[in-house]
Simulated scan of single mutants.
Amino acid sequence: MNKGDVQLKEFTNAKILALFLALILVIASGCSSSSSNEETGNTGSSSDDSGSNEETFTITLAHSGPSEGTGIQEALLKLKNEIEEKSDGRIKFELYPNGQLGGEREVLEGVQNGNITATFTTTGVAGNFVPEMEIFDIPFVLESKEQARHAIREGGPVLEKLGPKFEEKGLKLLGFGDEGFRVLSTKDLPVKSVEDLKGLKVRTQESSNHIDAWNALETNPTPIPFPELYTALQQGTVDAQETPFEIIAMSKLYEVQKYAIDMKMVYQYFPIMMNLEFYQSLPDDLKAIVDDCFSEALQNAIAFTDERDEEYVKTLEDNGVEVSEITGEGLKPFREKAQPIVLKNVREKIGDELVDLYLEEASSK
């Protein structure tokens, strides 16, 4: 091979090598761009001239209540459709009722640490996380729904003071609903006086104030998560419990209880709470949709329950439950035994200001 042939061969090899290296650079650049898009979540098509995508969010709401028939569950089913429609699919809503993801306390812990997006609980359980909620544990304060709703009305002083307290605990308070007064139901004893309560095994919420109140009434209180309540009543672990008429009817507790006594001990408010970090991560337009839809859902839940109050009582009576009520002066012995100890506990824990404000608002209606 002469010198010219050698030079031509070297030139050709160099050219092939250069083209090969250029091809590798192009491929590497494409992979890098694809990887960057995956890491930033930009896997969809762009929604505007800037090339950025509208992020989607999933709200997972879990609770311990029945999976059908209650005001709040029916309202949440409607909420799912509305919030997904109004957000044009940017918010997905997943609903897990009936304790599927745990009891009230367990689920609220999940919301606080971000594993679950949102929940509603009884105020007794919420008080374990936000001590100021314990104002609602004070027994025999309220005598009517009108009083109860006035005390916690939207825009009122009590609600305005509670909102920041939730945020301190990593929770966003979206509002309050209610299911009326908690009703004592028993297996064998038609309670008519405070003396009838002595020695009664009562299932209570997981709340020290509720336990103290029932201890003061000389019962044997036992905290049991709601999903385990029916079995506990059936097996005789406890022989009494207290939940609103709606819950007794829809959870079929009438199958293992014979008497229901409306003694207006504690009102069943339920706060709906969301993980604060998740809420703050939402764009402003989605925050507005969340606020509006949840507020409407709570009002729908209250209206649903109110419309069916008599129906729930009739369901109990049709299934052999004797329904009675203790009112007025008849409640005085109960109040004198149970209220002072809880009132003292709550004042010591959170101070007088919010307690006095709540009592004032409750009595002003």
Rank of each mutant, 00 (worst) to 15 (best):
S144V: 07
A303G: 01
V130N: 00
I224S: 06
D239S: 14
N215C: 06
N215W: 08
G199T: 08
E277M: 04
S64K: 04
D309P: 00
Y96N: 11
S52A: 12
T70W: 06
E317W: 04
V130E: 01
A249R: 01
D352Q: 07
P225C: 04
Q280V: 03
G30E: 11
I326D: 09
A62D: 03
L298F: 03
H210D: 13
E82M: 09
N13F: 08
Y267L: 08
L173D: 05
A249H: 02
R149D: 08
G156F: 07
L171D: 05
D88S: 15
N345Y: 06
F226H: 14
T305F: 12
K172P: 01
Q73C: 11
D285E: 13
Q205T: 13
Q235A: 10
V6I: 15
G110E: 00
Q73R: 14
S64F: 04
E195G: 10
K264Q: 11
T123E: 07
K15C: 11
T186G: 04
R90S: 07
N345H: 11
E179Q: 14
R308G: 01
E310M: 11
E195W: 07
P340Y: 12
Y312H: 09
I341F: 02
F20A: 13
K9A: 15
S35P: 02
I24V: 12
L184P: 04
P164C: 08
E242C: 06
K344W: 10
E311L: 10
G114A: 07
A232V: 06
I24M: 10
F57M: 02
G41D: 03
L184M: 07
L21V: 14
D88Q: 14
P164G: 08
S185G: 15
D291F: 00
E246T: 09
K165P: 03
